[in-house]
Amino acid sequence: MSSELIVFLILAAVGVLSGILMITRPNPVNSALFLILNFMALAGLYITLHAQFVAIIQILVYAGAIMVLVLFVIMLLNLEDEEPLREQMSKRHYGSLLVALLALVLIVQVIGWNSGGTLETMREQSPHALRIGTVEHIGSVLFTEHVYPFELTSILLLAAIVGAIVMAKKRFP
């Protein structure tokens, strides 16, 4: 067992466990904290994939900005705990759970079914992986090849800001 596999398995275990804990905690604040943990694990996985820029953005934007916003809203609304998940499960919920697990099985089947084909060539990372994940490379591609989507993103964010303000306002003048 190589060291890379060990690191991966640890990070994967943290990610999966924190995800499961997130969806089962009755208290939203706990959920949010477990989600942040999940994001951290993901950032670690990005590092193993040599995507340094994405890993840092993951921490900064997701864990830093978005989750703080979520926590802020949770505290603003001063929500009470939900009743424990076990007690609110109905037939419909069990059905949903079953379908979702079936979907998981099928996805894994698809991955395994295809492993004889294209995926088989991807047993290890590309030699370019180290180069393309750097901030320098991402920056140069982003501002040359993808500059139009990048600029359009700013418009999207502006629209989101305006939309958020309009909806969260107390009353329309």
């Binding site: 190589s2 991966f8 999966v16 997130m22 979907a103 996805i107 995926l119 991807m122």
Partner: peptide, 21 residues
Amino acid sequence: MVPIHYYLILSAVMFITGVVG
């Protein structure tokens, strides 16, 4: 070496976790 399948299956598990939630 970690084959890409591991990442894909991990991703699927997390995705379904989100779906269940």
